[in-house]
């Protein structure tokens, strides 16, 4: 019996080894290497020179680092709740029983399939203050639309709005969660005379709270790493670094300024920040998340 399980264990390991090896080579090694590089002056083209904590100290004194961090945090604070709320509301609407629901679900999911680069270009055209489609429509209802892309204040809001457009994936996960809410609970609430708002607040939301937590954590990771859309829509963080995000500065340091050590240090700071935020969310959630069964 013992030898069979040992054999099975070995077979299991062998079958899992392609993944394990791939993980060690393509994720584990770079992870450890970047930790070392973050302590080095490293241009990629020359061997790294160990400089201790120099990169980290320089980063804390670097104004642009703080600007980029502030922009990123502000974006996350605006975008995360906006995105989550949109996704939950959409999922709830799409969870009702009405005709043609499959088509509606598809419509709302499609935008998240659009490649980020096309998305950036498309929204540039929509939001353009001078020739865009959005402002003339707003004008028709009496609103003088702002200079969405050129105004430092509005540029970030534009990105948040675009982010809401791509909530399809989160929405789908909520939808799956909603379909998992046992009907007997809703029926029990009905019998107790709860109205639909009370049912949502006291039955549905608690039941999908693990899904909300999952999406929250994925959202924190995603928004803090926002890159492609602003990189294309707002080259060099225009206007006046209002849309210059953390990962853009990281990318510029690594590949344009040839400061891979500095960029690695930025990567590790980001990793620690996300880790802390995730642990914080998990701790906070203990009281609010209900796991079924």
């Amino acid at each position: 019996m013992k030898s069979i399980s040992k054999k099975e264990g070995l077979a299991g390991l062998i079958f899992a080894s392609p993944w394990a090896l791939g993980f060690l080579i393509f994720m584990g090694y770079p992870l450890v290497a970047s930790m070392y590089f973050s302590l080095c002056d490293y241009s990629v083209l020359k061997p790294p020179i160990f400089v201790g904590l120099d990169n980290y100290i320089s980063l804390f004194k670097d104004d642009l680092f703080w600007t980029a961090l502030k922009n990123t945090m502000l974006y996350a604070v605006l975008s995360l709740p906006a995105g989550m709320m949109t996704a939950v509301i959409l999922a709830m609407l799409l969870n009702t029983k009405s005709k043609g629901m499959a088509a509606y679900r598809t419509f709302f999911f499609i935008p998240s399939l659009v490649p980020q680069v096309s998305l950036a270009i498309l929204w540039r055209w929509l939001l353009d203050g001078e020739h865009g489609i959005l402002n003339p429509i707003l004008l028709k209802v009496g609103i003088h639309g702002p200079n969405w892309l050129g105004d430092p204040g509005w540029a970030k809001i534009s990105l948040v709005i675009m982010g809401m457009w791509g909530v399809g994936n989160a929405m789908l996960i909520y939808l799956a969660g909603l379909q998992d809410v046992p009907t007997q609970l809703i029926e029990a609430a009905d019998l107790d005379g709860a109205n639909s708002w009370q049912k949502t607040l006291n039955v549905t939301l608690p039941m999908i709270s693990p899904v909300i937590l999952f999406n929250l954590i994925m959202g924190i990771i995603g928004t803090l790493q926002v890159f492609t859309v602003p990189y294309i829509m707002f080259p060099n963080g225009t206007p006046a670094h209002a849309t210059y995000f953390y990962t853009e500065y990281l990318y510029d340091n690594a590949f344009r300024y040839h400061k891979m050590g500095y960029a690695s240090a930025m990567g590790w700071i980001m990793f620690v920040m996300i880790l802390i935020l995730t642990i914080f969310s998990l701790k906070m959630s203990e009281k609010h998340v209900h796991y079924q069964g």
């Binding site: 540039r124 353009d128 203050g129 001078e130 020739h131 865009g132 200079n147 892309l149 050129g150 105004d151 080259p235 206007p239």
Partner: peptide, 11 residues
């Protein structure tokens, strides 16, 4: 802001 708004569309 007039220049900024005018030019934003040229990007």
């Amino acid at each position: 802001s007039a220049m900024q708004s005018f030019q934003a569309g040229f990007n």
